[in-house]
Design a protein around this nucleic acid. Sequence first.
DNA 1: GCGACAG
DNA 2: ATCTTGTCGC
Length: 229
Amino acid sequence: MTTVRIPAGWPATEDEARAVQDELRGRVVLDEPGPPPGTGRVTGVDVAYDDERDLVVAAAVVLDAAGLAVVAEATAVGRVSFPYVPGLLAFREIPTVLAALDELPCPPGLVVCDGYGLAHPRRFGLASHLGVLTGLPAIGVAKNPFAFTYDDPDTPRGSTSPLLDGTEEVGRAVRTRDGVKPVFVSVGHRVSLDNACAHTLALTPAYRLPETTRRADALCRAALREAAA
DNA sequence: GCGACAG
DNA sequence: ATCTTGTCGC
């Protein structure tokens, strides 16, 4: 597991962070469909914290898209680089996540983030931010609707409903298990919303959350225990 | 003006 | 995110 430092020039205030989002937002690519589900590789990224010791650990787990077997894993440790502020989550996670991705022995393919992409107050959530910085196709799959609204999708797995910011569709509520609370999918970078939803369903053969985030979550928690010990 | 609000 | 035991159910 490698150690990372907070990048020079990293935003120190909320205003600075918002300014960075406003500037980078223009680099998001929305006119590409992205890789077809079930082919190539899919990488889950997630982060765990120990605020007491000022530790943050990120994990990246690469899966073969066909069969979902683990192909590679990497972790990174760092210091907390920003407080948690709704809308500014990316500044808390990105330096360490980037380091974990760098440690991978193979290309990540599509990156699946725990959070949002376009479904964001300034249309530039974690998945978009990570996508722009790496150039990789990225999507966001979140467990909560944040400040957005949606109608409950029909009961069967595969049902969806628009995730709305007013009347604008910023993502989709996707039912990944019959009758279970949906997940909230949004585009990050270089992937269409339809394709992002199809990937999400391909990654949830057994549980509500994508195998990518489940694997990454388990790995960064385990790595945090080691780092804190 | 006061909450609510991804992780 | 994180603090946290047992319990109900397939």
